[in-house]
Computed example of a mutant assay.
Amino acid sequence: MLSALRCGAGLDTGDIYIKQPLSLHGSAEEIFLRADGVIEQMIEQIVREEPIATPQRGDPVLFSRRTPAMSNLASCPEGDLSSWYDQIRMLDAEGYPHAFLEAHGIRLEFRRVSMRSDGLHADVKIMPIPPN
C-alpha cells in the first residue's frame, strides 16, 4: 500500500489521510513510475475531498538503511533464482547500487532482469573492481 501521511515529528509517524494499493511487480524503476501516477491521483483526491487523517495503529516496523555491500548477490540463498530475481529487480533504479557479484578482480553488475522458463535473463556490466 502507498500511504499519504500527515507530516509529524518522526519519519513516517503521522496520521494517515488515504492508502492506495501499489503493485510491486517489475523493476524498482517500473514501480517508481507506477507510484508517480498513484501519488498524483492521491494528491488530487486529498485536494478534492479534504479527508480527515486517522492515527496509525499497530507497532512500528523499523528498517535499517541499506549499505552497498547488501547488493552483493552472494548473500542470496544458494540455488534460489527467485531471490536473485528479487535482489536484481529491486535495485534496478537510478541512484541504487545495482546487484553485483565479484570474483577474480572483476565486478559484474546486473540490471533489467526477467524470469523466464529457462532461468533468469539480465543485462550485465563487467568491469575491473575499482581500487579502494
Rank of each mutant, 00 (worst) to 15 (best):
A53P: 00
A122G: 02
G58L: 08
P97I: 00
I31L: 11
I16P: 05
L62G: 08
P60A: 10
P68Y: 06
L22N: 12
R111F: 09
K19N: 12
S23W: 09
T13G: 07
V61G: 00
Q41V: 04
H121R: 13
R34M: 11
S75K: 09
I126L: 13
Y17Q: 08
A4K: 04
R116F: 04
L33E: 15
S75Q: 13
I18P: 00
R48C: 14
S75C: 11
A93E: 10
I106C: 03
P55Y: 07
D12G: 07
S27H: 06
M127G: 14
D123H: 14
R48L: 15
V38Q: 01
P128T: 13
A103S: 13
I31V: 15
L5K: 01
L62P: 01
L22A: 02
P131V: 08
G14M: 08
M115V: 00
R6E: 15
S64L: 11
E30Y: 06
R48A: 11
F110H: 00
C76I: 05
R89Q: 11
P55K: 06
I46N: 04
S3W: 07
L81H: 07
S71Y: 07
L73D: 11
V113N: 00
R111C: 06
F32K: 12
D80N: 14
I52V: 14
P51W: 01
R57F: 03
S23M: 13
G105Q: 04
L5V: 08
G37Q: 14
L120P: 03
F110K: 07
A4T: 06
L2A: 02
V61A: 04
D59C: 10
P97E: 11
L11P: 03
A9N: 09
H98V: 05
Q87V: 02
F110G: 01
F32D: 11
R48S: 13
S71D: 11
E94A: 03
G8M: 03
S23R: 10
N132R: 15
R107E: 12
I46R: 05
S114F: 01
C7K: 15
M115I: 08
E40D: 15
R116M: 08
D92H: 02
D12P: 09
C7W: 08
G95S: 03
E78A: 11
H25A: 15
F110Y: 11
L5M: 11
I39H: 03
L81I: 08
K19M: 12
L33C: 13
A99T: 01
P128G: 12
Q41L: 07
L81A: 13
M90C: 08
Y96W: 10
S71F: 04
L11Q: 13
I126K: 14
F110R: 02
H25F: 05
T13M: 10
V61H: 06
I43N: 02
D12Q: 05
P130R: 15
R48Y: 06
L91V: 02
G95Q: 07
E50P: 00
